[in-house]
Design a protein around this nucleic acid. Structure first.
Lengths: 96, 96
DNA sequence: ATATTTGGTTTATAATATAAACCACTTTAT
DNA sequence: ATAAAGTGGTTTATATTATAAACCAAATAT
């Protein structure tokens, strides 16, 4: 009846991050923070969880002299997201 | 960009309960428990939260000699659910 | 009579989310 | 040159939430 919702994706901020990254090559911390309206601390923690799950890859570099954290979704992230969407459909029926 | 997801509905079990109740006149505790595969304790707590939010109404009666808790969705519950689905669409785009 | 089952509720604990405090710099103003 | 403010984060403490385990009252079965 109701499929399980991957708890790693069933979180407002992590879902927003994945949802953002899925339609873009990559995005940096500041941009993600702006788009999601998250606090830096919260975003840092959630990015870490997504990375540890293997759903996104994170690359640290410098843009000029300032640090820059760039994220992109991995193939695992893409399929986890797709499965999550399928599972959601079991809850939402034809409303979605 | 991303709409807020009503935290009361953005919970796997509460979403399942509402999703079940929205397509049915009413359902009793045991039936909901079976369909959602929840433990009784968890279900009891989550039903309570939904009721306190005014999203469902709960009626206690006896079926023969055994207690029976019957739930049904309220108009507030219906619109909260519909708003939640709209908000979700801002995350899932055309995948849904 | 006692043990088990039904239909739950309460309460303790684990997991999660969030904000506040902090750190390492860089830039700007004095 | 030095202090103050800003950038780009991380760490840590706290509040919130979810979940399971323990419990309770009544019914049924043995």
């Amino acid at each position: 009846m109701f499929k399980e919702l991957n708890p790693l994706l069933h979180s407002e901020l992590r879902l927003a991050v994945i949802s953002l990254l899925i339609s873009v090559e990559s995005a940096d911390f500041v941009y993600i923070k702006e788009q999601t309206k998250a606090t830096a601390g919260n975003l840092s923690v959630q990015i870490d969880k997504l990375q540890k799950a293997g759903y996104i890859s994170v690359e640290k570099s410098f843009k000029g002299k300032l640090p820059c954290t760039t994220c992109s979704i991995t193939p695992d992230g893409v399929s986890a997201f797709e499965e999550y969407v399928m599972a959601l459909k079991s809850y939402l029926g034809d409303r979605i």
